[in-house]
């Protein structure tokens, strides 16, 4: 069990530069949690427990609207971390996390373990600063997409992003989930998908959305 998380830790940028004994310390203090589809991992406003690392399955990080809708901020798959910010500032969870697929397994590294590693290893502190800067850039990009671009452009960008990280695709990536991420309705996503199909950028093959031409999709995505 410990060796399982050590494999993941070694591949995570936060922990680049750590010695084998430091990785072992984190692994020995991490806890494996399992969830079924649609099971809540944590709620917004609850005290943060630490840094989460997906071992298997997919997770959505989302905010709920007072009227009952939701906005998906991030989709996370194997090897991805989430709730980084709350794990670092020891404040409350800024959003909700829910399992998207069945048999989701996630490692939790408690906040005090993260703090101990950070306080003794400047390389990890530098890694964290770089990753936080990247997160800020990503959020600025999301705001830009929502404010400036049409649904078709946003969808094209989303599809390209998904193929760059195949771990994010799979069961749970539905039109409703895409709509909740791109701040629109499932019906609008259907229209946009048909538009991309008509432009011969994608095609449907049962449960697959196949990107036929990355160049065409990039052109539509204004990239």
């Amino acid at each position: 069990m410990t060796s399982s998380i050590k494999n993941y830790l070694g591949a995570i940028r936060y922990f680049e530069g750590l010695s084998d004994s430091e990785l072992s310390y984190i692994a020995a203090n991490s806890i494996l949690h399992t969830y079924e589809a649609n099971e809540i991992i944590f709620l917004e406003g609850e005290p943060a427990q630490g840094l989460w690392i997906v071992e298997k399955g997919r997770v959505k990080i989302h905010k709920l609207h007072p009227e009952g809708g939701e906005h998906i901020l991030h989709l996370r798959g194997p090897g991805n971390t989430f709730n980084d910010i709350a794990a670092l500032d020891n404040e409350h969870n800024p959003a909700n996390a829910t399992a998207l697929s069945s048999e989701v397994s996630i490692w939790l590294i408690p906040s005090d373990v993260i703090t101990n590693v950070l306080s003794t290893n400047p390389q990890v502190a530098l890694n964290v600063i770089r990753l936080m800067a990247r997160r800020v850039r990503s959020l600025v990009g999301q705001i830009e997409d929502l404010a400036l671009y049409s649904v078709v452009v946003r969808l094209a960008r989303f599809l390209l992003k998904q193929t760059e990280n195949p771990n994010l695709s799979g069961p749970g990536i539905t039109r409703t989930a895409i709509a909740a991420h791109l701040n629109t309705t499932p019906q609008t996503i259907s229209v946009a998908l048909r538009e991309l199909e008509a432009a011969e950028a994608i095609e449907f093959d049962r449960h697959r959305i196949v990107i036929l031409s990355e160049d065409k999709l990039r052109s539509i995505a204004l990239l």
């Binding site: 195949p166 196949v210 990107i211």
Partner: peptide
């Protein structure tokens, strides 16, 4: 009702399932 999708590049069509 929701239908899950796998998003793939054409040359990766056989992967992931």
């Amino acid at each position: 009702i929701e239908l899950p999708f796998l998003i793939v590049m054409k040359h990766h069509k056989r992967e992931g399932v």
